[in-house]
């Protein structure tokens, strides 16, 4: 295989509805380009695991300290909505896997359809999440309008948590569960939104015919990202909604 910088390698399009792909000039072969990008993306996903891992470590740490708080807090969440969202994400993960498969087999329309279904799953997930947050807001467990109000150390009451005498009255530091719930689901939700955005971007390229059996790298990578979002939720669901 030649290593001089004077040639560009082009992967031809498999059909008239597709466009060819030019391999970046510093790579010798398409396989090298593919594997380099993929290894890089797996490394990035590893960083995501460790980033979320910190949150999970905090969860377990305080689940150990205040088991009653967590058990009672978990009961304030609607597990049915949680299960619904789990189902939605699992199905969307499946549609994404099918989307990648369609790109691998040069099925342009199917790629677009499965990607669109995945975005739809993301949208449903976020709508359900919105109603969940809304309910927490109404019950005074997370009052979003007062989220960033300053905390008065002297009275010891947190502005966004209004439940000191309500359902969480019997347990220590009732706000802690909801703070962790909010932080974890908000960061996860951000990933859902980013993932949906990436899938829309991939769809733009797919519509132009950029992805086919010869070149489907972006679809593959965005798919991996979406599965990671699903992966994290698989752990969040039992930990938050069905606190063991």
């Amino acid at each position: 295989m030649s290593h001089d910088g004077h040639h560009s390698v082009v992967i031809p399009a498999p059909g008239p509805e597709f466009v060819p792909h030019t391999v970046a000039h510093h790579f010798d072969t398409p396989v090298q380009e593919f594997q380099a990008a993929k290894l890089g993306f797996w490394l990035f996903l590893a960083t995501e695991i460790l980033l979320f891992g910190g949150l999970f470590a905090a969860y377990f740490y305080f689940h150990e300290s205040y088991p009653e708080t967590f058990r009672l807090g978990g009961r304030q969440l609607d597990w049915k909505l949680g299960a619904l969202n789990t189902t939605v994400l699992l199905i969307s993960s499946w549609t994404m896997a099918m989307g990648v498969r369609s790109a691998q087999t040069s099925q342009k329309q199917k790629t677009l359809m499965y990607c669109a279904l995945t975005v739809l799953g993301a949208a449903i997930f976020m709508v359900v999440k919105f109603f969940e947050y809304k309910a927490k807001n109404e019950h005074g467990l997370i009052v979003f309008s007062e989220l960033f109000h300053p905390y008065d150390g002297a009275t010891g009451s947190i502005p966004w948590f209004k439940d000191y005498h309500g359902v969480m009255a019997g347990v220590p530091h009732g706000h802690l569960f909801f703070a962790i719930y909010l932080t974890m689901t908000a960061i996860h939700g951000l990933h859902v939104v980013i993932g949906a955005g990436l899938i829309l971007w991939v769809m733009k390229g797919a519509a132009k015919g950029r992805f086919h059996a010869g070149y489907f790298l972006p679809v593959d990578l965005v798919g991996l990202y979406w599965h990671l979002v699903d992966l994290i939720w698989i752990f969040l669901f039992p930990l938050l909604y069905l606190v063991p």
């Binding site: 090298q32 594997q35 059996a213």
Partner: peptide, 27 residues
């Protein structure tokens, strides 16, 4: 600098394509 499967310019030269049935069963 080159993969075992350096037989072609296709990125997926050696890439595995799973069957739809398998994906559905996993779901």
């Amino acid at each position: 600098h080159h993969d075992d499967h350096s037989h072609g310019a296709l990125q997926m030269g050696h890439h595995h394509v799973s069957s739809s049935a398998m994906f559905f069963n996993v779901l």
